[in-house]
Design a protein around this nucleic acid. Structure first.
Lengths: 236, 236
DNA sequence: GCAAAAGTGTTGTTGATACACCCATGT
DNA sequence: ACATGGGTGTATCAACAACACTTTTGC
C-alpha cells in the first residue's frame, strides 16, 4: 500500500446492495424495491444503501439494510459477498462504489409486498433479465451475476436446501434445482444421488401427502456444506 | 438504494490491493513489497494503493498500481477481482476499504527483486501462511483467499496455462498443478486428459530436450477457458 | 547399452443416465 | 380400480486410476 501522506486521498461514497433470491410461484425470484426519488425515480432497484457510519462493518451494513428495507431477518439468511461494482458514472450523482451481497431465502411467509417494508416486490429473474426490462443503475448486471453465482453453487454445495423450508421433501429440493437451472432432472436418479451424499439431509421420520400418490419422506438440512461428488448441470 | 439527502454519507478511503501469484523455484510464490513508512513500517505487504482520483475505474486502478509498484505489465496478465475487505480497524490510520485483485503470472523474467520497482520480493506462499510469519494489515488472510481461488480455478478452468511461458511442455503444465495443489499427478493420465480437452493446448510441432529422455512436445495456450470435464483434486 | 523422460494401451472401478418396476396413497 | 407421485433395481456408458509397455533421447 502506498502512502496517504503523498497526496490527497479521494474519498468515495460506499454503498452496500443486496440480491435476495428466493423461489416463488415456481420460478426464481429476486427482491426489488421501487425507488421513491431521483435518480431512477419509480424504477426498480436492488435494496441497499450507504454505509451508516465510518465505523460500520460491511457485513453488518448488509444485514442492517436487508432488515431496514425488506423487513427480513438477515440472521436467518445465508448472506455472502458477491462482488464490488465501481465503474465511474454508475451513479449519476457522484462516484459510488457498491459492495454487493447475495442471499438465498426459503419461501417467504409473504409479508413482503406492501407489508411493513416500504415497497418491496418479488420479481422473476427471467423477467428482470429480459432486454426490455429497465432496472435502475447497473443493477441488472448485478442480478445476472447473482443468479449465475446461485446456479454455480448448486453444483458443488448444499445451497439448494437454503431455498427450502426447515422441513422439506426430496421433490421440494429437486424443484429448487429444476427452477434455478431451468432444466428437468430425473426424480429417481436425483433421489439416489442426494441420499448418497453423507450429511446433506437428515430424515425426520415423518411423511407428508400433498398430492395423490405415495407420501414423501420429510428431511431437515444436515451439516454437510459441500457436495461430493458434485451435481452436474447438463453441458450448455 | 436509500437517499443520500437523508443524512451525511460517510466517506471512506478506497484502496486496491493485488495478489500476484507466480511459480518460482518449484513453489507457488506471491509478490510482496516491503513498507517504507508506518504503519507496519518494514513489514511485508501486498502491492496496492489508494484510488488516484474520484473518477478512476477500479480495474484501471488495479493495473496502474501493479505497474507502478512492481514494474509488471498488467495488460499481459490476467487480473480478476477477488473480494473486498472492509473490517473497521483493518487500517489503524482511518477506515480503509480495499478491493482486492488476483493475478496469475508466468515465471517472471527476474527483474523483480531490487529491480526498477521499489522493493518487490517474491515469497513462497507456504512460508507466508505459516503462523509465525508477520504480514501487514489483514493481508495474510487476503493471500490465503487468493491461493484458495487459484487452487479452485485450476479444477474447472484452463488457468494453469497462465502460469506457463508462451510455449511450454506437458510436464511444465503438470508441474503447475502439482505445485499449486501440493499433490502428485500421474503424468500419463494427465497427458491423456489434457490432450482430450478441445482447445486447451495447441501443439507447435516443435520439441525440446531439457533432460535426458525423450524430448517433449511444445504447446501454446488454446482458446478454451473452461475445462470439461473438470480436473479434480484428490478429496481432502 | 542403460537410465530417464515422453507418450500409448489396457483393465478394473466408480459415477451418471435411462428406464423398468414396485410401493403407498387420494379419489 | 386407477391415476399419481415416491422410491428401488439394474443395464449401459463415460470418465478415471493404476500400471504395463513402447518410444526417443542423453550419457
Amino acid at each position: 500500500m502506498p502512502e496517504p501522506e503523498e497526496w490527497t486521498i479521494p474519498e468515495v461514497a460506499l454503498a452496500v446492495d443486496l440480491a435476495v433470491l428466493t423461489i416463488h410461484d415456481g420460478s426464481l425470484q429476486i427482491m426489488l424495491i421501487r425507488r421513491g426519488i431521483p435518480p431512477y425515480e419509480g424504477m426498480l432497484a436492488l435494496p441497499g444503501g450507504f454505509l451508516a457510519s465510518t465505523s460500520e462493518d460491511l457485513d453488518r451494513a448488509a444485514t442492517r439494510e436487508l432488515s431496514e428495507e425488506t423487513g427480513l431477518d438477515a440472521n436467518a439468511l445465508h448472506l455472502e459477498q458477491l462482488r464490488t461494482y465501481g465503474a465511474p458514472g454508475r451513479d449519476p450523482r457522484q462516484r459510488v462504489i457498491t459492495v454487493c451481497y447475495v442471499a438465498f431465502s426459503p419461501q417467504l411467509p409473504a409479508p413482503i409486498a406492501g407489508g411493513d417494508a416500504r415497497d418491496a416486490v418479488l420479481m422473476p429473474v427471467e423477467k428482470v433479465l429480459r432486454p426490455r426490462t429497465q432496472i435502475a443503475f447497473d443493477h441488472k448486471k448485478i442480478i445476472a451475476d447473482a443468479v449465475e453465482r446461485a446456479r454455480a453453487k448448486l453444483e458443488y454445495t448444499t445451497l439448494a436446501a437454503a431455498f427450502c423450508a426447515p422441513e422439506f421433501t426430496m421433490t421440494d429440493l429437486r424443484e429448487v434445482y429444476e427452477i434455478v437451472w431451468g432444466e428437468q432432472l430425473d426424480p429417481r436418479n436425483f433421489h439416489r444421488k442426494i441420499t448418497g451424499v453423507e450429511g446433506f439431509l437428515i430424515p425426520t421420520g415423518e411423511r407428508v401427502s400433498r398430492q395423490p400418490g405415495r407420501p414423501a419422506a420429510l428431511y431437515r438440512r444436515g451439516p454437510a456444506t459441500v457436495l461430493h461428488p458434485a451435481m452436474l448441470r447438463g453441458r450448455s
